[in-house]
Write a protein that binds this DNA or RNA. Sequence first.
DNA 1: TGCAGTGTAAAACGATCACTTTACCTTCGC
DNA 2: GCGAAGGTAAAGTGATCGTTTTACACTGCA
Lengths: 175, 175
Amino acid sequence: MDIRTRLLETAEQLFDRHGFNATGMDRLTEGAGISSRTLYKHVGSKNGLIAAVLNERDRRFHRLVEEDSIDALFGALETWLAQEAVRGCLFLRAWGETGGDVPEIAEAMERHKQRLRGRISDIVVAEISQHDDELVETIQLLFEGATHMAAYRGVATVDVARRAAQRLANAARAS
Amino acid sequence: MDIRTRLLETAEQLFDRHGFNATGMDRLTEGAGISSRTLYKHVGSKNGLIAAVLNERDRRFHRLVEEDSIDALFGALETWLAQEAVRGCLFLRAWGETGGDVPEIAEAMERHKQRLRGRISDIVVAEISQHDDELVETIQLLFEGATHMAAYRGVATVDVARRAAQRLANAARAS
DNA sequence: TGCAGTGTAAAACGATCACTTTACCTTCGC
DNA sequence: GCGAAGGTAAAGTGATCGTTTTACACTGCA
């Protein structure tokens, strides 16, 4: 496997499990099986590594939600949560730990949330054949809520969010 | 003002603004205007301080939601977000930064979420005159979602969450 | 009068942080 | 067969971390 890929995958797991600040460079290099010199050649700095992890995660997430349906959206979240022991949104966590003061991290977070909203907007049009900003925002609320509630209540909460989204979409379709 | 109160208020602001790990003891003692010896006399350790901050915040939050109505719940969240520049749920943030490995912090988080759920459960009974676990969970999803979306989209998102909760409660009442 | 309690300032603790440096080894295209 | 590219291990950089210690000042109660 490619060194960079291995590094990003290891880092993502460690960051999620222990937090960003609490994960030292030693643990990262040891986990990825590379020297610290190589790590710095590839990502420049720890913040660079965090940003790279987030951007790769964003790409992976959107590859997971390709179909334009509410079911696909929450199905993706379920898969997402099952294969990674997420403790809330990793983008918001990185942003919070750095106080919003690291541009590359703040931008990665912002970009991810924008893309998420775009996706949901497409889904709403596909589901009810018209634009409805309130419905988009509500589904995003449910999605964001499920992401964080799953951290302390388990994946089952995603189903509740999905059903609520579908009920609201049905109501919007009827009107 | 009481030393302990001043310490907890300062710490809460600094933790929220910069994150827990990134806020050193120097900044805390300087911010509260006390010596490090006094700080350790009062809270024992940094983790003790974090736990104390969370528990005090929990008490303050529940004092804010005394009325049993959906409107009061989201109204409280709005007040909450307006007077503190929150970057997501401070309980989940503390829990995430410490990897869930610090018992006193994990317990503070768990207790807060349990109490929140209890409150919402009471609200549902007051609003639709019967128990409805699915509705409770959905309202919690909207609440949790609003807490985190407000971090990057502003307080306005709370209104959307409130309206969705009310619509779902109305539907549950009718059935 | 004296002493316990509570506070201060400031230095020191060892550990750990992100990051750099030095010196050496392998691999591969020309 | 040579040089550049890209890797390793390991020591060292200065700064900062959470925490403890030393030495001293003020207050209020017995």
